[in-house]
């Protein structure tokens, strides 16, 4: 574990890998119970605002400083209306209702179009009180792992 990467909430840090040196203001420690698919051994993450680029946020691994992802709060996206997190997934996080959880979408760059896509099939869902989270895979065939985000944003 890299101790330098451990930051107190609300502490502004500039991470070497974070998006070309954009400073990040952390606001939440998150423990991903099952790790992240593709990075199953990584559990401790911190969520932070990218200064000057709000509402874009970074999800930064505390175990591996090189692992971070661009994320955005799901409820900011029009497509997220009426999306419910399954009760089983909420129970695991000890959350009563879908609206009591916080949900973030992982973004990436499509190499062909150079535009953002979002994985709306598998949001990061967490309990804001405990910080316990999971990447939940939604059983809905209409949700794409590479949803074009520019249409959502403009």
């Amino acid at each position: 574990m890299n101790t330098e990467a451990q930051v107190a909430p609300n502490e502004s840090v500039t991470s070497s890998n974070s998006f070309g040196g954009i400073p990040m203001t952390t606001f939440k420690n998150i423990e991903l119970i099952n790790g992240l698919p593709g990075f199953e051994d990584l559990h401790a993450f911190v969520l932070g605002d990218l200064e000057g680029y709000e509402p874009f946020c970074a999800l930064q691994s505390l175990d591996e400083p090189d692992i971070s992802m661009l994320v955005i709060e799901a409820k900011l996206l029009p497509i997220w209306k009426n999306i419910e997190i399954p009760p089983r997934e909420l129970q695991i996080l000890e959350v009563d209702k879908s609206e009591d959880s916080e949900q973030f979408i992982i973004l990436r760059i499509n190499h062909n179009t150079q535009e953002f896509t979002g994985n709306i099939k598998a949001p990061i869902v967490f309990n804001p009180k405990s910080g316990a989270g999971n990447q939940v895979i939604l059983d809905n065939a209409n949700l794409s792992v590479e949803h074009p985000m520019n249409n959502q944003i403009s």
Binding site: G20, F39, I106
Partner: peptide, 18 residues
Amino acid sequence: KIQEQNRAATASTTAQLG
């Protein structure tokens, strides 16, 4: 597919994404 997307998303976390 989610594994692949997550790996790609972290790979994007570079100057390119910045």
